[in-house]
Design a protein around this nucleic acid. Structure first.
Length: 560
RNA sequence: UGUCCGAUGGUGUAAUGGUAGCACUUGUGAUUUUGGUUCAUACAGUCAAGGUUCGAAUCCUUGUCGGACAACCA
């Protein structure tokens, strides 16, 4: 028998490139990536895809991955974002090489290279009005025209650029431009801007600089400084690649050279992903901050109860390619259910309680029943839950006039109280509005779980909480933030018009089994038959607060 | 009327000239003291037309459709 020793695994196109480079010993066989966020907002699930990709590739090929803050625009950036970004990456389970890097640490080097470009006759200072410059740039289908300052003498360029650096000119008065080709079909090659004047303090370099490099001039050079071999970014930078390469051409001397590779960013159904829109939701108080559990931010997902593992699995499952894609948000939910199913202890929690009185159970008596913590985890052990004459069950688990397929409680029907007895509904009471107030049952006292008469089968099994032992909690039931599959995809309508008015329902009076008395923020549980829930950061010992991460799959409500 | 990129089941993603596979979704059935999990099973795909070839999702040509690009943002 000969089985293939190693099943040939399929590689995504970036892995293919890397393996090809490895085979050819390009860059001495080094693999060095980087994740380069701009610290101008919180990271979201789309960034998580990129983080898992870059750090994952580095891990897999025994390479390195840097964290580099692309902080070349002090007008939008802030240390608050730097800190949240670091926290999110670490939480996801990744480590960057060395300290975090900052493009702003390269400003001196970048400046020197710019001077070199001027000396080489490849850059010039333009002092025209912004509107004129943009007019001269033309449009994609028509070439642009040269700036009258394009052939300014080198000495003058040098003097002016130094003046720019020294603060001799107002913000916006001049720019440094690369001298490339104003008739290029690629707009980015039409003498792109390298430096602009910005009299603005920077969150790291303070007031040292009043000129700042543009992304295109800073990014490839930063990659080069750090020894990056594969500079992975999203598709919209594809058209920048010739410029990335052009700037590199001006400084590369040896054999080492970084290479830009573009992949398709993540889009999620029923979600908006742009930083601008997320910022809008936060600033207009449409959600409760960047870490609102409804936000697709990493901090929001964390607070919602998503595990790092579940996000990594999700990133693995969606793959990497160059075609535009929209991932069903259901796949994200699948990933978190899958992981939580493996690790979350099961507990009883009644979200919409209705009281059940077991009339043949002695008053004032109670007993302990033992319940398995997690049937998926053999090491999970068990716990004790008190049972007594008065219990709460879920309001939805009772119907006055149930259809035949309703396997729960109804007049005259028998159900199993999980871990305890089979009970039969004998009667119930309603208030003046017709709402059920109390349900009366009799228990089959021989049917206790684990006992001799327990093998008898009934159709339904309910979770329950002993009324006198129950602890109270608030449960926040989250649902998707938008009702439309592509909220940002309507030309004539604002994405906010599609917000789900019921994305958050607060249930203030839930009843939990007493073992939940001393949980801590972040703990995850399966509320049996309901879903996965985690302890919110606002929870305290005397005011428990849980967030619903995701409901269980529910083939019952679907058939209704 | 530009340049660049892309097109495989409903959604993603493999197959790199040789059996179109996997996951999610959906349907059906089994198991189940969670209408969960698990297991089994089914539905469903190569944008179009030509060409090269014994053989094309893959190579070539043309077309169609989709996306990106005209910030002193990244």
């Amino acid at each position: 028998m000969d089985f293939p020793e190693n099943e040939k695994q399929s590689l995504n196109f970036i892995e293919q490139i890397i393996e090809e480079d490895l085979k050819n010993n390009n860059n001495e066989g080094r693999i060095h990536l980087r994740f380069p966020p701009e610290p101008n907002g919180y990271l979201h699930i789309g960034h998580a895809k990129s983080i898992c990709l870059n750090f994952g590739l580095a891990n897999h090929y025994n390479g390195l991955c840097n964290l580099r803050f692309d902080d070349t625009n002090p007008e939008k950036e802030d240390v608050e974002y730097v800190e949240s970004i670091m926290e999110d990456i670490q939480w996801l389970g990744f480590e960057w090489d060395q300290e975090a890097y900052y493009a702003s640490d390269y400003f001196d080097q970048l400046y020197d290279w710019a001077v070199k470009l001027i000396k080489d006759g490849k850059a010039y200072v333009d002092e025209q009005a912004q509107s004129l410059i943009s007019e001269q740039r033309g449009v994609p289908t028509r070439p642009g025209i040269n700036s009258p300052y394009r052939d300014r003498p080198i000495e003058e360029n040098l003097r002016l650029f130094e003046g720019m650096k020294n603060g001799e000119f107002e913000t916006g008065a001049m720019i440094l431009r690369a001298k490339i080709d104003m008739s290029s079909p690629n707009m980015h090659m039409r003498d792109p801007i390298m430096y602009r004047i910005l009299h603005q303090d920077h969150h790291r370099s303070g007031d040292k600089w009043c000129i700042y490099p543009m992304y295109d001039y800073a990014h490839g050079q930063s990659d080069f400084i750090e020894g990056i071999t594969h500079s992975v970014c999203t598709l919209e930078f594809e058209i920048h690649r010739p410029l990335y390469d052009w700037f590199l051409d001006q400084i590369v001397e040896g054999n080492y050279r970084p290479r830009q590779i573009e992949f398709a960013r993540l889009n999620l159904s029923y979600t908006v992903m742009s930083k601008r829109k997320l910022l809008q939701l936060v600033e207009e108080n449409l959600v409760n901050g960047w870490d609102d559990p409804r936000m697709p931010t990493i901090s929001g997902l964390r607070r919602r109860g998503y595990t790092p593992e579940s996000i990594r699995r999700f990133a693995e499952r969606i793959g990497v390619a160059k075609r535009d894609n929209v991932i069903d948000v259901g796949l994200l939910e699948f990933s978190v259910r899958e992981h939580l199913n493996e690790i979350a202890p099961r507990v009883f929690a009644v979200l919409n309680p209705v009281k059940v009185i077991i009339t043949n159970y002695p008053e004032g008596q109670s007993e302990e029943v033992e319940l398995i913590n997690n049937p998926e985890d053999p090491e999970g052990g068990s716990r004790i839950v008190p049972f007594s004459r008065e219990i709460y069950i879920e309001r939805d688990d009772f119907m006055e006039d149930p259809p035949k397929k309703f396997f729960r409680m109804g007049p005259g029907r028998e159900v199993r109280l999980k871990g305890a007895y089979i009970v039969k509904c004998e009667d119930y009471k309603k208030d003046e509005n017709g709402a059920i107030t109390e349900i009366y049952c009799t228990a089959d006292m021989d049917s206790k779980s684990g006992g001799a008469g327990a093998s008898r089968k009934v159709k339904g099994t309910l979770h329950w909480v002993s009324a006198q032992h129950a602890i109270d909690a608030e449960v926040r039931v989250y649902d998707r933030l938008f009702l439309d599959e592509d909220p940002a995809g309507h030309k004539d309508k604002d994405f906010k018009e599609f917000m789900n008015p019921e994305s958050l329902k607060v249930l203030p009076a839930c009843k939990l089994e007493p073992s939940l008395a001393d949980v801590k923020a972040g703990d995850s549980f399966q509320f049996q038959r309901l879903g996965y829930f985690c302890v919110d950061k606002e929870s305290s010992a005397d005011a428990l607060v849980f967030n619903r991460t995701v409901p269980l799959r529910d083939s019952w409500s679907k058939r209704k």
